[in-house]
Design a protein around this nucleic acid. Sequence first.
DNA 1: TAGCCGTGGTA
DNA 2: TTACCAAGGCT
Length: 287
Amino acid sequence: MRLAEWYRTSARDLPWRRPEFHGEFGAWGVLVSEFMLQQTPVTRVIPHLEAWLARWPTPTAMSAATPAEVVQQWANLGYPRRALWLHRAAVEVVDRHGGIVPREVDALLALSGVGDYTARAVAVFSYGDRHPVVDTNTRRVLARAIEGRSQPSPPSRRDLPLMASLLPASRQDAAVVNAAAMELGATICTARAPRCQDCPIAIDCAWLDAGRPDTGDTRRRQAAYEGSDRQARGAVLRALRGAPEAAVPLELVLADWPDATQRDRAIDSLIADGLAEARDGLLALPG
DNA sequence: TAGCCGTGGTA
DNA sequence: TTACCAAGGCT
């Protein structure tokens, strides 16, 4: 099919698509990359991924690290609880699977921080099995090409069966179609300015055929970041990461933050999440 | 289940 | 400048 052919000639050369990456890090490398790629752009992930795998090349190596070390190494990738979940998942892989990232979707889904997308991405892109992999790019491609909508609906239980119905029979071809749908959404069928003139499936696209109508947008909007608790939490963690011994006297944490109530709420919630801990009058990354 | 959770690039 | 957007998942 045209989509698969396009992928084979036009896909970006990304680290986790290289055979030597799979040879060196196996499913662990794919799992780490997928954690980092959750809501974080490819270009920001690549250098962090390489540093992470150089330090912790296996689940067993990762499982021996402390939470403070993983949060520090996560640096400014954002959503730092992903670092804790990845660490927890590594421990679970060691405890439950002998240090080998499992192949079965159900076993993958049982790991911390692994949901429908990440579980199937590992099973398909590392182990080569046949499952539908649906991310935000794929949902947008399907919404346009099949439903004729300008933007996808929020994630739905129907997404997986729909993608499954489009996969070719062979495992290898199915994996390529999964990857190609994501790649098309990431590079051609983008959210803002889709390049339909370069699209390999333009002739089959319901949305293009209808004249690219604006069908409205039912996606959930992201809450404002400026002035949010998220911003305060981010500022606290940045201060801890940058401090000697990753610890700051409690009364000096965000001492000049404009909203003291919000600052204290941020500190308390970070402690509750296991991303910080208070000891001896200090706030520190979790030991 | 709808809200919440970081960070930085882009238009 | 403000708002959108980015290989999601948890509660």
